[in-house]
């Protein structure tokens, strides 16, 4: 919604399709915990070796097919495409 200027209904469907889940699941915190953990997208509670911050965002950008400015900047600093 933020990066593509979508209205809420369209944005929910876009994310649900990318996550291969139902729109209903997006607001089910138990289901989303499972999805986020399985895809290693970062969760509210930290876990050993789990991604958070930039590493989680890199995965989110790839999964949702969006350009996140801070991820692009980070890649540029590393001097190579991730």
């Amino acid at each position: 919604m933020v990066m593509k200027g979508m209205r809420i209904g369209e944005a929910k469907k876009y994310v649900a399709d990318k996550l291969h889940c139902d729109v209903f699941d997006l607001t089910d915190s138990a289901k989303m915990k499972e999805i986020r953990e399985s895809l290693d997208l970062g969760t509210v509670n930290d876990r050993p070796h789990a991604s958070y911050g930039m590493s989680a965002k890199i995965k989110i950008a790839e999964l949702l097919d969006i350009k996140i400015p801070s991820v692009e900047l980070f890649k540029k600093k590393l001097g190579a495409a991730l």
């Binding site: 990066m3 997208l41 958070y52 911050g53 930039m54 989680a56 965002k57 801070s70």
Partner: peptide, 11 residues
Amino acid sequence: MEQAQQDMIMP
């Protein structure tokens, strides 16, 4: 902002 973006997931 640059420092914050390293740690944050949400926009």
